[in-house]
Design a protein around this nucleic acid. Structure first.
Lengths: 210, 210
DNA sequence: CAACTATTCAATAAAACAATTGAATATGCA
DNA sequence: TGCATATTCAATTGTTTTATTGAATAGTTG
C-alpha cells in the first residue's frame, strides 16, 4: 500500500462517519437519542420526519455505527452506540454556534418573543429558593437527569401543578438549547401564577465525557 | 416562529457546517491546514486533488466559515478560522477511530509492513538519549512545533544528516497519524545507520484547546 | 503592455443523497 | 390461524454533490 492509498483509505473511512452527521434530520435524531433510547415510531413522532424516512435515517446512523439497535417485542429501539458520538456531536454544535452566529440569534429571537430568554445556571441554583424541574418525557428522566430534579413531563404539567411548592421559583429544563419544552413549561407555569425560568444547561451537557 | 420552524432553522444551519466535513478531500485539507496556512497550490500539491478542485473545496470550507483566506501577492493563503474547527475535527477523528476499527487496522498494517509501527510517547522522551525531529516542511515547523524539536524536512533529510547527533535515537514526527513523512524519515535514517522511531503524538494533538 | 502565475468561475456529467410511496416482513395477540 | 402493529425494503423522483474541463480574472514581472 502506498502512502496515497493509505490516506485515501483513512480519509474515506472517516468521511463515512462524518457523512452521517451531514443531514439536519439525522442531527435532530442524534439530539433525541442523546436524551435516551427511542423506537423508530417515537423518533418519527418527535420530529417532522415520516416513519419510513426516520427508519432510513436510523439505518444510516447504524451503518456508520453511531447507533445500536435492540429489538423489544415488535419494536426496534435505537441507542447511541458510544459516548464519543455525543462528544463529537457536541463539538460540532459548539463549532457551528461559534462560526455561525445566526444560530444563536435565531434561538434568542425565539425566546425573546416569548420572554423565556432569561435563564439561570446550575451553579447558581440554591435549593431553598428554586425547584429544578425536568419537563422531558418520563423515560428520558429515567435514562438520566440532573441531581435533585423533579420529573413532570410538559404534557402533564397542567394536571400536576399541585406537586409544585408554591413559594419557590421553578427552574425548568429539557433536552437542551434547541428544545422548546422548557419554554412551553415556563409559559404555562407563569400563566398559573408561578415564578419560572429556564435552566441554562441540560443533562446532555454533563454526559459528554469520553 | 413555531417550535418546528426554530428546530428546522437550527438543524439546517448546523448541517451547513457538518456538510463541510462530509468529503474525504476536505478532511485531508483540514488536516493539512491544521499544520499551518497554505496556498491553494500547496494544498493541491500535497494532496491528490486537482488545482481547480482544491480551490472549490477551499471555497466550500470558506463558506462554512471553517477557514479564512488572505491574499498575498497573487497567492491566496488559507488558514483555519477558529481553534474550534480543530477541536471538532479531532473529536470526529477520535469518534471515527473508535467506531470504525478498520482505520486503526489500515494504519497498523501500513506501518508493520515497513517496520515503523514502533513509536515512543512524548512523555517517555529523555533528552539525553533521544533527539526529537520535526520532518514537516519548514513553514509548518515555524507555524508551531513541539518544544525542543529540530527541524529537517524529510525531503532534505538525506543531505543534512550531519546535523544529527550520532549517539542518540532519532524520534521523528510529522502531521499526525495519517501522515507518512515520519515513516519515510525513519526508514531513511535506519538505512543510514541511525536508530530511529516515530513519535506517538503530533503538534496538532496539543493545539486543540478551544 | 505583454507574458506569466495563481486562482476563481462556469458548464458539464456522473454519482450520491433524500423524501415519498406502497409493498413486504416480522412480531405479538386474539 | 388471522389481524394488528412496528419496521424495513424497494422503487421512484428530484435534488445535491463531486470532479473535470476549459475559459476568465487578478495580480506580478519583465
Amino acid at each position: 500500500m502506498t502512502s496515497r492509498e493509505l490516506k485515501n483509505d483513512v480519509y474515506d473511512a472517516i468521511a463515512g462517519i462524518t457523512k452521517a452527521f451531514s443531514n439536519p434530520n439525522r442531527l435532530e435524531i442524534l439530539d433525541l437519542l442523546s436524551n435516551g433510547e427511542k423506537s423508530v415510531e417515537e423518533v418519527a413522532a418527535q420530529t417532522a420526519i415520516s416513519f419510513a424516512n426516520a427508519s432510513q435515517h436510523l439505518q444510516v446512523l447504524k451503518s456508520a455505527r453511531l447507533v445500536r439497535l435492540r429489538k423489544e417485542g415488535n419494536k426496534v429501539i435505537y441507542t447511541l452506540a458510544n459516548p464519543k458520538v455525543l462528544a463529537a456531536w457536541q463539538a460540532m454544535k459548539q463549532l457551528a454556534e461559534a462560526v455561525e452566529p445566526g444560530i444563536g440569534l435565531t434561538l434568542r429571537q425565539y425566546r425573546r418573543a416569548r420572554q423565556t430568554d432569561q435563564s439561570i445556571s446550575l451553579s447558581a441554583l440554591d435549593q431553598t429558593r428554586y425547584l429544578l424541574l425536568d419537563v422531558r418525557p418520563a423515560g428520558e428522566y429515567d435514562y438520566g437527569h440532573l441531581p435533585g430534579a423533579l420529573s413532570i413531563p410538559v404534557d402533564e404539567l397542567e394536571l400536576r401543578l399541585t406537586e409544585l411548592p408554591k413559594g419557590k421559583t421553578i427552574v425548568a429544563y429539557c433536552r437542551g438549547a434547541y428544545c422548546t419544552m422548557a419554554d412551553a413549561a415556563v409559559l404555562l407555569l407563569r400563566a398559573k401564577g408561578y415564578n419560572a425560568v429556564r435552566l441554562a444547561e441540560s443533562p446532555v451537557d454533563s454526559a459528554s465525557a469520553a
